[in-house]
Design a protein around this nucleic acid. Structure first.
Length: 496
RNA sequence: GCCGCUAUGGUGUAAGUGGUUAACACGCCGCCCUCUCAAGGCGGAGAGUACGGGUUCGAGUCCCGUUAGCGGUACCA
């Protein structure tokens, strides 16, 4: 018995780490940090059929990327198999559980839900299990004789189960609504409810923070704790995260948009995702939304977690908003506000991945590299934008956006004006923001055209885009040589 | 079917123990800035708090019912 906070995140490796799991991990982590406790990772791999090592790796990777590495673990539930069986055996010996010789029901191919409903209807009269009161000696004889039996917990026949949930408050459930649950299958393998409880006891878990999908089954687990004579931990259940339309957010149906690794691969900053996730189902109660980890830790409390499920609002049909717009906003905000020195290596990594990196960006052109990042980040939302939208700034090879050409380089006058502008720029003494601006404006005045015609034309000629940073910033950034080269190169594109 | 949980604008959330025209953020629209796009500034539309009953001088806030969604109900986790 300790006062020390010990929490755990216990994913089952039957799929990748999804946003719901990530948030559960995050809340456990925040709670542990807040109370100076320990955050443990336990992989619940008892379903050997559906679990895979690859999934374990994915989960570990995702958690690491989010900065949620465990203080202890990862432990693997399957390695505690002996403890689980021993616990069940003890309960049988103490008369708190019993052998059930009822033959295992054939698993038919009907939908699980259907089967459950049918079974419930059939049991409406609910006689109690005939083996519940079979004397232990007799049961053991049968086992000896080679009969197979599952082990079920004896649930009290009357009364109500109660526990105080830190999020949902007082929970009550009649014992008569809980059937004697199976602890050990007739093949000897332990079942989930038993395994978690035994593990949580052995790991000295003080607070169980997990998804709301476990809320009603918690009564069963409390029963197991008590039967085992262990102290019951505190529980805090988290509202579920739903897909638009209030349907369950599932890996199967919603695909990669719910996978944490997708966010890493598509250029999210871990802190931004963490900040977004923290506010899904929790609020510090004030207006502040952008919060560092330290602030999150300081302000976090389970009691402030709300009870209704949150909708993760992504739009499948809109590639611009492939995930929740607010998540993208958070990311853009972090991109803009973070210290440039921290952003620099991340952008470098992006460029390396897409073959745009040059060693000089870390050497003689380091200042240039930083300034360029500073210029671009104001209008980007993800790290990957630096390698896609940013290509013209880091490489001489880039594509001209057809609609940009049409919009900014269709005026035939530009055929003369752009090369003319190039000549003016060539003659400049200093190739600075102000000097290039003065030159361009003087030139446009002389030619009797609006500066905007030259400016927008130049932007498309220089970057292939219709939108982007201020034109004189672009020129200075590219430098005189490349500016002239690109302006001249673009003349062929004018007209059409 | 049975048991349980939840219900504030499109989305995420606020609104200590019931007390003024329900607040903030994202998104959307408009204006300003301006060479475009962002960023920034300003403004706007959008909920009368799922619905119906109560209790109360007064309810988003308490009670009951209904509905909907979700969860559980399995020798799944």
């Amino acid at each position: 018995m300790t006062d020390k906070v010990r929490v755990r995140f216990a994913p089952s490796p039957t799929g990748y780490l999804h946003l719901g799991g990530a948030r559960t991990a995050l809340f456990n982590w925040l709670f542990a940090r807040k109370h100076g406790g320990t955050y443990i990772l336990r992989i619940e791999d008892t379903d050997q059929q559906r679990s895979s090592e690859e999934m374990v790796r994915g989960i570990l990777e995702g958690l690491h990327w989010m900065g949620l590495d465990a203080d202890e673990g990862p432990f693997f539930q399957s390695s505690f198999d002996r403890e689980h069986r021993a616990a069940a055996r003890r309960l049988v010996e103490e008369g708190k559980a019993y052998y059930d010789f009822t033959p295992k029901q054939e698993t038919d191919d009907r939908d699980v839900q259907e089967r459950i409903v049918d079974r419930a209807r059939a049991q409406a009269g609910k006689e109690k299990n005939p083996y519940r009161d079979l004397p232990l000696e007799e049961a053991l004889q049968r086992i000896e004789a080679g009969h197979q039996a599952a082990i079920r917990l004896k649930v009290p026949e009357e009364g109500v189960s109660r526990f105080e949930d830190m999020v949902f408050g007082l929970q009550e459930r009649d014992y008569c609504d809980i059937e004697d649950l199976v602890l050990i299958r007739s093949d000897g393998s332990p079942l989930y409810n038993l395994s978690v409880v035994v593990d949580d006891i052995n790991m000295n878990i003080s607070h169980v923070i997990r998804g709301q999908d476990h809320l009603t089954n918690t009564h069963k687990q409390v029963l197991i704790y008590k039967a085992l004579g262990a102290e019951v931990p505190k529980f805090g259940h988290l509202p579920l995260i739903m897909a638009p339309g209030r349907e369950k957010l599932s890996k199967r149906k919603h695909g990669e948009v719910v996978s944490v690794t997708t966010y890493r691969d598509r250029g999210f900053l871990p802190d931004a995702l963490v900040n977004f996730l923290a506010l899904l189902g929790w609020s510090p109660g004030a207006d502040q939304e952008i919060m560092s980890r330290e602030e999150l830790i300081e302000k976090f409390s389970l009691e402030a977690v709300n009870k209704s499920s949150a909708i993760f609002n992504y739009h499948e049909s809109d590639p611009q908003n492939w995930t929740d717009p607010k998540a993208l906003w958070f990311n853009a905000e972090y991109l803009r506000q973070m210290p440039i020195e921290e952003l620099e290596p991340l952008v470098a990594e992006q460029l390396k991945q897409s073959g745009l990196w040059r060693d000089e960006y870390a050497g003689e052109r380091r200042n240039w590299f930083r300034e360029t990042i500073a210029l671009l980040r104001m209008r980007y939302r993800t790290l990957t934008d630096f390698a896609t939208l940013g290509q013209p700034y880091f490489s001489d090879e880039f594509e001209y956006d057809p609609s940009a050409l049409k919009k900014n380089l269709k005026d035939a006058r530009l055929k003369e004006l752009i090369p003319g502008l190039a000549r003016r720029l060539e003659d400049l003494e200093d190739f600075t923001h102000d000097a290039t601006e003065a030159a361009l404006r003087a030139f446009s005045e002389e030619q009797g055209v609006k500066a905007g015609l030259l400016i927008n034309g130049a932007r498309t000629a220089l970057t292939g885009h219709a939108v982007g940073p201020g034109i004189f910033d672009i020129m200075v950034m590219l430098g005189r040589e490349r500016t002239l080269e690109r302006l001249n190169r673009a003349t062929d594109l004018i007209g059409q």
